[in-house]
């Protein structure tokens, strides 16, 4: 029981600095700090040359230009070797004409995957599950997604989360369920009685004082 507790305590949390790392990748050795000033999507996949992962890599490569427009870099990871990553990326390009433009960490010693809690023994004791860490330009973890081995990720949702986070940062607002860029945003609710009374007079579209929205 204690062992489980320690593992859980060690997992990264939203709002905390992303664990530093230095890793061997398909584009040379990289440190987390090399990404300072850019947003970063760090994602893990179970293994090279596997079907669901291949569809995901093609999908990540396809949204790469959309990520770049948002100032976001992409970094993959699995516990396979650099040679395996290179061979797989070349095979994907040869068979599907999709070039993998982002680096992939070869986490053979599992240092990065352990620091980020990417190995879930209930799913696999040796492979990383499908994790997504969205790390902001100050290297703070802003979103963590975990998908099981059998379920490929949804790229639209990753882009939607990034849009929502960047909109929140730029405008001091929150975003409602199923929000898309251009939709109304949520005004943070007041935290005083006086503020609650004033809120309804401020010209926002309100259901009540605690749920007011506006167009940006």
């Amino acid at each position: 029981m204690e062992e489980v507790k320690e593992e859980v305590m060690g997992l990264p949390r939203l709002g905390q600095p992303a664990p530093a790392f230095e890793a061997v990748t398909t584009q040379g050795p990289l440190k987390l700090e090399d990404y300072k000033g850019s947003w970063l999507v760090l994602f893990s996949h179970p293994a090279d040359f596997t079907p669901v992962c291949t569809t995901e890599f093609i999908a990540f490569a396809e949204i790469f230009p959309d990520l770049q427009k948002r100032g976001v870099e992409l970094l993959g990871l699995s516990v396979d070797s650099v040679s395996s990553h290179i061979a797989w990326a070349r095979n994907v390009e040869e068979k599907t004409k999709v070039k993998i433009p982002f680096p992939i960490i070869a986490d053979l010693n599992k240092e990065v995957s352990t620091a980020y809690g990417m190995i879930h023994p209930g799913q696999s004791k040796t492979e990383t599950v499908r994790c997504v860490f969205i790390i902001d330009d100050k290297q703070v973890i802003r979103t963590i997604l975990y998908y099981p081995l059998t379920t490929g990720r949804n790229m639209d949702e990753i882009l939607r989360i990034i849009d929502a986070l960047q909109t929140t940062d730029a405008n001091g607002v929150a975003t409602p369920a199923n929000w898309r860029p251009g939709d109304k945003v949520v005004i943070p609710p007041p935290n005083t009685q006086e503020g609650a009374e004033e809120r309804l007079k401020e010209g926002y579209e309100c259901v009540d004082w605690y749920l007011c929205q506006k167009k940006l």
């Binding site: 050795p29 090399d34 990404y35």
Partner: peptide, 12 residues
């Protein structure tokens, strides 16, 4: 080149 590549490359 992307900034992360340059930072890593300059270190090397």
């Amino acid at each position: 080149l992307p900034l992360f590549r340059v930072r890593s490359g300059l270190r090397e």
